[in-house]
Computed example of a mutant assay.
Amino acid sequence: MAMRSPGRRRQKAVPAPDVDEARWIDVGGLHKTYRSRRSEPTHALSDIAFTVRRGEFVSVVGPSGCGKTTLLKILAGIVPRSEGTVRVAGRDVTGPLPEVGMVFQAATLLPWRTVLRNVMVPAEVRKLDTGVYRERAGRLLTMVGLDGFEDRYPHELSGGMQQRAGICRALVHDPAVLLMDEPFGALDAMTREYMNVELLRIWRESGQTIVFVTHSMAEAVFLSDRVVVLSARPGRVAEIVDIDLERPRALSAMASDRAGVHVERIRKHFNTAGVIDR
């Protein structure tokens, strides 16, 4: 089912007027340094610069500790930048924005709430129209194959089902951007492949702009329009790789020769075996 924004009497995530859709996310000269009274400062990110078009799917890969999650949290307004500019949907990011939804490594569903009530959390926090958003939540759950599970509790769901509920929760307030921090890293290989295909379907139907952090080069190539490759800490943009695989993509594309060329191009930036997954 294609996603449509429900009827309007609600506080929607509205982009700034006259925003350039080619620079829906615009990062320039970004630095992040963590400071501690007990230790030397840690320079996590250095001079990061890239843009993301509206509706684009961009992945970020790099070795452990290179600042991938920090970058995502800065885009989300959860962590402040030290220097540089960060704009999302035409707005300067100085704190959490309604334009942004985020999916974490774990689904982090509230165990005492049903699936539907978990999905409704962002609407309740923002004091949005409960009736309108309950309808939207139901449509999202149908879109991800969780219709009939609205009244179940998280412990009654598989890991993949929990992550699908987490994606619905991030989408329920209709954000302009969806940020995903290794959401499938804890899943078994078969479930992870299924979730990759599901995510592409959800992305296609919802029209969201997605920035996706992963350790897996193959996953990044399969999912993305472009892949931002970060160096070891402090994370710098080593290369931005355009992915020219046709869409829509079946799992077989992951094993194609062309995908392999892209994976090897990304791999050349990492000299230590096993730094990031194949």
Rank of each mutant, 00 (worst) to 15 (best):
H262N: 04
D181S: 07
G185W: 11
G235I: 02
T114L: 02
R91L: 06
R278T: 11
E99G: 06
I243W: 01
M180W: 07
W24L: 12
T272M: 07
V125L: 14
L116A: 10
D92A: 13
M1T: 12
G101T: 14
P17S: 08
V115N: 03
V52L: 02
K73A: 05
L75P: 03
F184L: 09
S39G: 12
N118G: 10
A107I: 09
G207Q: 04
A186C: 05
R201A: 06
R258P: 06
E56L: 00
V228F: 03
S231K: 05
D20R: 09
L200N: 03
P183R: 07
V177S: 09
N196A: 11
L71Y: 03
R117A: 13
M190L: 15
R134V: 07
A273Y: 03
T214H: 07
T51V: 15
V261Y: 06
L72C: 01
V100M: 12
L200R: 08
R265A: 14
R91G: 00
V221H: 04
I74L: 05
H155E: 14
P98A: 13
L230K: 05
D151A: 12
V172S: 13
Y153T: 08
L45I: 09
G90D: 01
E150T: 04
P248W: 02
G148P: 01
L75F: 09
T85C: 05
P98N: 10
G235E: 01
M1I: 11
D257I: 12
P41Q: 09
R91D: 04
M254D: 02
H31A: 07
T114H: 03
T85Y: 06
V228S: 03
H173F: 15
A44E: 02
V14H: 10
V144M: 01
H173K: 12
S36C: 07
S36I: 09
A176N: 12
H43C: 06
C66R: 00
R278D: 13
L146F: 03
V115M: 08
D277Q: 09
H43Q: 14
R169D: 14
V52Q: 00
G67D: 00
V119R: 01
F57W: 02
V132E: 01
D92N: 04
D129A: 05
C168V: 14
M195G: 11
R91H: 08
P96Y: 09
V79I: 12
V275L: 14
V58E: 00
L199M: 11
A250E: 15
S252P: 00
G166D: 10
L230A: 05
H43K: 14
V261P: 00
V125A: 07
L140T: 03
K68W: 02
A49W: 04
Q163W: 10
L178N: 08
T114S: 15
R53S: 11
R10A: 15
Y133R: 00
T142R: 13
T51R: 12
S5A: 10
E198H: 08
R278G: 04
T214R: 04
H173W: 13
F184V: 10
L179W: 07
G29R: 13
P183C: 11
E21A: 15
K127S: 10
P15N: 13
G166Q: 07
Y34Q: 05
D151E: 15
L199R: 06
V237N: 01
P80H: 12
